[in-house]
């Protein structure tokens, strides 16, 4: 180590070797040793992802398109529905295989986002309630967001193997932080005098949480969900390196063959999917006031149907 070099006080860093990388490489050995234990869990999640994908692929494209447009109309209004319809038609005509690839990507994104919500929402609420927890979790979130994906790609593959489950885990690591941060921010942003009033009228801590804090934090939490979805989509190319199918894989293959045309097709597909998901979730996040205080069943296609049924009756 340092015997052959003289120790230089002005440059101590190059003469001392703590062998950090050698020691931490042990994580790979640990991952390989624990592979067997993780396989049943992997099987469960793999089954889940496959089922979601199968369901999305089973619906004929036109019906799926209509469904997505209806969801957009319900969530975000007529104008967004028209935009979504145009985007989805463009996506379909990009390439004969584009629709099916997009559905595969959508399945991975949906799985990741569901897991992000299951993990991120409770963490965010906890962080919103406790300063100490927030202080503890903040550096973890910073790491998750900034550490290059390639760093954790190898250990994750060693532990779980290539495929969808690894793809989802890699995506969660990158996409989870904004949901936790914005949930915490939303809870902290609730007007304290409203919470005090709820206390003064005898609400239990749980009632304060579910009847006051979460409803008032919802727009901020949905903004976090929107960011989580966007970040999940931005991970699809990297996830395709560990054998996740879909639009990302198209881009990766095109890159390998220096096929610019195919790369553009795959890339545009991802962008269109991102626009569709972004507009729908942004529509969800608008406050009650912006929607003119109408309940969700009083607007959009459901409102139309309800209105028709009531008109008949």
């Amino acid at each position: 180590m340092a015997e052959d070099k003289t120790f230089n006080w002005l440059d101590p860093f190059s003469s001392v070797d703590l062998d950090v990388d050698g020691r931490t490489d042990g994580i790979k050995q640990w991952a390989i040793a624990n592979r067997e234990a993780i396989q049943p869990i992997k099987g469960f999640f793999d089954g889940l992802i496959i089922r979601i994908e199968a369901a999305l692929q089973a619906v004929p494209p036109v019906i799926m398109l209509v469904l997505l447009v209806l969801i957009a109309w319900q969530a975000a209004g007529r104008r967004v529905a028209i935009l979504v319809a145009a985007c989805l038609v463009a996506l379909g005509f990009l390439d004969p295989a584009a629709w099916s690839l997009a559905m595969t990507t959508l399945a991975i994104v949906i799985s990741s986002v569901i897991l992000c919500v299951i993990i991120g929402l409770p963490l965010g609420i906890l962080a919103g309630k406790s300063d100490r927890f927030e202080a503890a979790i903040r550096p973890v979130l910073d790491t998750m967001q900034t550490i290059p994906a390639f760093v954790y790609l190898v250990p994750v593959v060693m532990l779980i193997g290539i495929g969808n489950v690894s793809g989802v885990i890699v995506t969660i690591i990158f996409a989870l932080p904004p949901l936790v941060r914005l949930t915490s921010l939303g809870i902290r942003g609730v007007n304290p005098s409203v919470v005090e009033a709820a206390r003064a009228f005898g609400a239990t801590p749980n009632q304060i949480m579910f009847k006051v804090e979460l409803p008032l934090a919802t727009p901020t939490i949905l903004a976090g969900l929107n960011q989580t979805i966007m970040l999940s989509l931005s991970m699809v190319v990297i996830a395709s390196m560990i054998s996740v199918k879909g639009l990302g894989n198209e881009v990766l293959r095109a890159m390998g063959r220096l096929d610019a045309g195919k790369a553009i097709v795959g890339g545009l597909g991802i962008v269109i999917l991102a626009i569709v998901l972004d507009r729908i979730t942004q529509g969800l996040g608008r406050s009650g006031r912006a929607r003119g205080h109408r309940h969700w069943w009083q607007a959009g296609p459901v409102g139309l149907v309800v209105g028709l049924v009531k008109g008949r009756g």
Partner: peptide, 28 residues
Amino acid sequence: LRAQKIGMVFQNMALMPHRTVRDNVVFS
């Protein structure tokens, strides 16, 4: 005690913006 015996009015109203007037009034 708070729900049944004491009613409180606040300077800044502290009404719940996501609830209708009626749901605010009968919160307790």
